[in-house]
Amino acid sequence: MSKKAVVLYSGGLDSTTCMAIARAEGFDPYPMSFAYGQRHSVELEKAAQYAPRVGAVEHQVVEVDLRRIGGSALTSDLEVPKGRAIDETIPVTYVPARNTIFLSFALGWAEVLGAFDIYIGVNALDYSGYPDCRPEYIAAFETMANLATKAAVEGIGRYRIHTPLIDLSKAEIIRRGRELGVDYALTHSCYDPTADGLACGACDSCRLRLKGFAEAGEKDPVAYASGSKPE
């Protein structure tokens, strides 16, 4: 019998691969996406397109306006960095407490669904320095989830936060997705797309994605803006 799993799903490369993995591991995926005031909201269109193709049982889109607090280039008028040296310093594209907010919503839905498994596509190897993508953060949230929910306290089940991509390079993530039949043409990763939804090719997310496809020996199937110079 299949089990239910809530999957945090942005419509990007990592979360789409993560959902395919959840399905391959025997779960019925219940993807949850967020309209949080992000400048790259085209990702939600991709999420809506792709969710049915990987067997989503029910796709929730939660509205939470993080532009009200700002503090990030993704949720304010701050400029998205382009062409910077990618390292483990925390960039201005970090959204304050984003994964904590998203996981909290996912935990609430999981408890309502009677599910005890949550998938999130965080990555600690090929990432842009976000503190809420680290293994110790995920372990801490899982501990909290099992202290803060009725289902866990009453012994009905124990919550587990699955992070199948956390130790993989971007190239390894792409190869795993290909094995599972993921169509990356229906994903979106750019932080600062054009008005037509084309990827910029120069933000951290685009550059990490392009690097991953190059190392996997593939060409990225998404369209990039004219004049951008994918590496």
Rank of each mutant, 00 (worst) to 15 (best):
H162S: 11
T143D: 09
R134S: 11
G155Y: 08
D183W: 12
A148H: 03
L147G: 03
N123W: 05
N146P: 01
A148K: 01
L147I: 03
D167H: 13
Y127M: 09
A148V: 14
A124N: 11
A152R: 05
M144W: 07
A152Y: 08
E136V: 13
E142M: 01
G155T: 05
D126H: 02
A148Q: 03
A171K: 01
Y184C: 04
P164M: 09
T143K: 15
I161R: 09
L125C: 02
N146D: 08
N146K: 07
I120T: 15
D183E: 13
P164T: 09
G121N: 04
R175L: 10
E142S: 00
E179H: 05
G121C: 01
D126Q: 00
A145H: 00
E154F: 05
A140K: 14
K150I: 07
I161Y: 07
L147Q: 12
G157K: 09
E172V: 02
T143A: 14
D183Y: 09
A145W: 00
Y127N: 10
A148G: 01
P135N: 13
L186D: 12
V153Y: 07
P135I: 12
H162D: 07
P131E: 15
E142H: 00
D183S: 13
Y159R: 02
E142Q: 14
T187D: 07
L180T: 02
A152I: 09
Y159E: 01
A124G: 09
I161L: 15
A185E: 15
A140D: 07
G155W: 09
M144N: 03
L165F: 11
R160V: 14
E179W: 01
A152H: 07
V153S: 11
R176D: 02
R178H: 05
D183L: 10
Y159K: 01
T149W: 02
H162V: 04
V182W: 03
K170P: 10
G177D: 03
V122A: 10
L165E: 10
D126T: 01
G155C: 05
F141W: 14
M144H: 03
A152T: 08
D183A: 11
I174G: 06
T149K: 02
D126C: 01
T149Y: 01
A148F: 08
D132K: 08
A139N: 12
A145C: 10
A124D: 15
E142Y: 01
H162M: 12
A185Y: 15
K170C: 12
I138M: 15
K170W: 12
F141Q: 04
